[in-house]
């Protein structure tokens, strides 16, 4: 393998070729896939984790189990889990259908294990944050809500979830960043798209300085930018979905800001 590196200069040259941007295997196509996969996987994980977290926060059930599971999962290398599932699952998936221009025909046997790993990784931060958020809701506020005649659903929607929103959103953000990052690893599965494809394929072409490294670098930087943009988007979303009374933002006057809730999971 090559030891003298082409460097940023070759990245410039690579980026200058419109084909590397717009082509069917170009940066933008892969970015589109990356985004689509992220959205789908985070949505699926959220649909599992957030209702479960609300239920656990409410009932206090299963918290020890989920906490332990989340902790243990942190120790499991994503790549190992991915490859384990590919070797174990892929031979049993026979569907050859593709999905539009996101999934090539025949990609499904690899995409399913990859998506499964990502969902498994994305659930714990959302789950732990959601139940911690619901549990941290001032029990007097919830009590007063019931006492005012709210139904359990109304209590959850009008009081508990809004109060837990900073933590729920932090969990969603952690999970999203996790998925954006781990999708690059998931590209180790054959035929799975996303920006990781350029990185993994680039590694195979490392010998060819005009193909391998600049593509990897270009894709890598795009992933980083995507992650930073997503991070910023969540910060911005927080301004709209978190009540100032809960976040302590922009409230002046007596200067007593709302108590700061700390995020339990880090991105």
């Amino acid at each position: 393998m090559s030891s003298d590196l082409p460097g940023f200069a070759s990245l410039g040259r690579w980026l200058n070729d419109p084909d590397n941007w717009l082509g069917s295997g170009g940066l933008l196509a892969h970015l589109r896939e990356h985004l689509a996969f992220t959205v789908v996987i985070v949505l699926v994980a959220a649909l599992i984790a957030i209702p479960a977290g609300i239920w656990m926060g409410h009932t206090g059930k299963g918290i020890l189990l989920a906490g332990g599971f989340a902790n243990a999962l942190r120790a499991v290398p994503a790549l190992g889990l991915l490859i384990l599932l590919i070797v174990e699952l892929s031979p049993h998936i026979h569907s050859r259908t593709g999905v539009g221009n996101l999934l090539a025909p025949g990609a499904l046997p690899y995409f399913i294990p990859a998506a499964l790993v990502l969902v498994i990784l994305a659930v714990p931060p959302m789950l732990t944050n959601t139940y911690a958020g619901i549990q941290a809701v001032d029990p007097r506020a919830a009590d007063a809500a019931r006492g005012a005649g709210m139904s359990p659903l109304q209590v959850a929607l009008r009081v508990e979830i809004p109060c837990a929103m900073p933590l729920i959103l932090a969990g969603l953000r952690s999970a999203t960043l996790q998925v954006i990052a781990s999708l690059t690893v998931a590209a180790y599965a054959p035929l799975v798209g996303g920006l990781g494809r350029l990185i993994v394929d680039g590694q195979q072409n490392l010998i060819d300085p005009s193909l391998g490294y600049p593509a990897m670098l270009g894709a890598g930087i795009t992933v980083a930018v995507l992650a930073l943009v997503a991070d910023g988007a969540f910060a911005l979303a927080g301004r709209y979905v978190i009540s100032p009374g809960v976040s302590g933002r922009r409230i002046r006057g007596r200067g007593t800001a709302a108590p700061q809730q700390s995020t339990l999971t880090e991105s």
Binding site: P77, A78, G80, I83, L84, V87, E88, Y188, Q203
Partner: peptide, 30 residues
């Protein structure tokens, strides 16, 4: 748990067991 990611770009460490298992389609090293 992050160390093994380095296998994707080819830096040798225990993560090689995973890539090895994938290329030989054997469970044992994984």
């Amino acid at each position: 748990s992050l160390i093994s990611v380095a296998s994707i770009i080819g830096v040798s460490q225990l993560g090689q067991l995973f890539t090895l298992g994938e290329s030989t389609e054997t469970l044992t090293p994984i």
